[in-house]
Amino acid sequence: MKDHQFILVDYLVKHFSGTLSQTDLQSLQKIFEDDPTLRDQWEKYISQGVKSSDAQFWSNLDLDQARTKILTYEPTRSAIRSVSNARIRNLQIYVGIAASLLIFIGIALFVNLSDRDKQIVADQVYHYKNDVLPGGQKATLTLSNGQTVELSQEQATLREQHGEQLRITDGQLYYKPNSAQAELATLKNTLTVPASGFYRMVLPDGTKVWVNSASELSYPLAFGKSIRKVELRGEAYFEVAHEKNRPFLVSTAHGDIKVLGTAFNLRAYNSAASNVTLINGSIQLTNKNKTTKQIIPGQKVEFDGHDMRISQANIEKEIAWQQGYFYFEHDRIQDIMEQLARWYDIHVIYQGPITKKTFGGSISRSVSLAEALELIKRGAGVEFTIDKKTVTVNKNK
């Protein structure tokens, strides 16, 4: 039985490194016939186990050395307890096959993955070199004293200077107003959302904000008496709490948006221009040249430091990210890949002439990168390769 377990480990390593041959499969069938319980363990492991797309890692595992160590040494309970609870939960899937040896492999794999990007996984369907998982809800909050806190969906309560309370509930950051302390208006927080992330929050005045990937929002712990001002770099969707005598101002690199109570999407990355789309209410836009325009719901303004261009907006397209999907409408491949680059945190390379063909359609932001690329390439006339987090775009021949 022990020999069969050790042989099964060899085949598992071959499976994950992509070197399992037809002869190996025949040998496996014989092992399963001799001991049907090993078939169950094999299937459970390959379906639930931690998988590595790095064949070199699996190929470099020294199983002979591991066997020698394990046959002469049995880990103590205290040694096993020293592994974190999270790791033990993941390593339990190894124990049913060959306990000590698989724990050795498991620890080696976790050490290896600690230096790797956990978004990179094996591609099981589309035959890319690897796949990349989609982004999720995550951000970093910089408090007024410079301390940084990693945010996720887990419930938590934080405290700022002067006892201001911040809490995370249902994956959303809330501020408990404390208007009695005027000094709070001089204290700033900054919410930084990395590539492959997004986050939701409610500002001290009740304004709701959805912050997209690779974006940064700065705001005071309490707004002043005459104006509510925040600063945005990146993209965010705002539902502004209505206050007739205290307008809400969003400052960007290309201009300021002034509102009373409304919903709008603002994209203000460090590119040639920004744009704002009004969903309802009213906004006034002032660019760096002090030119001012007011738009009505359903309109979109592209603006930089000099010009402003008003057009009719496709509301569904502009706020699709906030609803959890990509929406493309006659979009160039460069614009499509720019959105994917932020959500999957990838680097995009174009090889050869860039196609002029445009693409339309919608894709859930919950799918893996490989699935998204497969959907796009059918209509955009391109081919893709994935190498870790680098995607190469080739025009179809």
Rank of each mutant, 00 (worst) to 15 (best):
Q153G: 10
V132Y: 03
E316K: 07
A222T: 07
A273P: 10
I376A: 06
V202G: 02
D345Q: 01
D131V: 06
K395M: 15
I336K: 02
A55N: 10
I70R: 12
Q26Y: 08
K208T: 12
R81M: 14
T19W: 02
K44P: 05
G136C: 13
R116T: 09
I346V: 14
A372G: 08
E43L: 09
L166H: 03
H162A: 04
S226M: 13
N178Y: 10
E302N: 11
G360S: 15
D345T: 00
L184E: 02
I257C: 13
T252M: 11
E316V: 08
Q56T: 13
K377C: 08
E302G: 09
N112H: 15
N396G: 05
M337D: 06
K44C: 08
K30H: 09
N275M: 13
N178G: 10
I93E: 01
S47A: 11
N280D: 15
A55Q: 10
G171L: 14
A253G: 12
M201Y: 03
L340G: 10
Y11Q: 12
L285V: 07
A86W: 09
K397S: 07
G261Y: 04
V83R: 11
V132H: 04
D131P: 04
Q56G: 05
K377H: 06
A108G: 11
A341H: 04
K138S: 12
K69W: 14
L158N: 07
T157V: 15
L187F: 04
E338Q: 13
E231S: 13
Q119K: 11
G298I: 05
L63S: 06
A272K: 15
S271V: 14
Y237D: 01
N145F: 04
E329I: 04
A122P: 01
V121L: 07
W321D: 03
D335S: 12
I93S: 09
N90M: 11
V209M: 05
T207W: 13
V9G: 04
N314H: 07
G261K: 08
T355D: 02
G224H: 14
K188M: 12
S213H: 03
I120G: 01
A268C: 08
K258I: 01
Y344H: 03
L20K: 04
L187H: 05
Q323R: 15
P220R: 01
Q322A: 15
I93P: 02
L102Y: 02
H127E: 11
Y237Q: 07
Q29M: 09
S368Q: 09
D387C: 07
L12A: 08
P297E: 02
S218D: 03
E164D: 05
V121S: 07
W210V: 14
R159K: 12
I336F: 00
A380P: 01
Y73I: 02
E329C: 04
F384W: 00
R167N: 03
A108E: 13
G281M: 06
Q351K: 13
F104P: 00
Y350N: 07
N275W: 08
Q29E: 14
K188L: 10
R159N: 14
E231C: 06
L373G: 05
Q165V: 10
F326D: 02
Q92S: 13
K118G: 07
E371Q: 12
A214M: 06
E74A: 09
E231Q: 12
D387W: 00
E231Y: 01
Q119G: 09
T169H: 04
N212V: 14
E374V: 12
F16M: 12
I105K: 05
A263L: 06
G255Y: 00
N396Q: 08
Q41N: 07
A214F: 01
Q312Y: 08
G146V: 07
T292V: 10
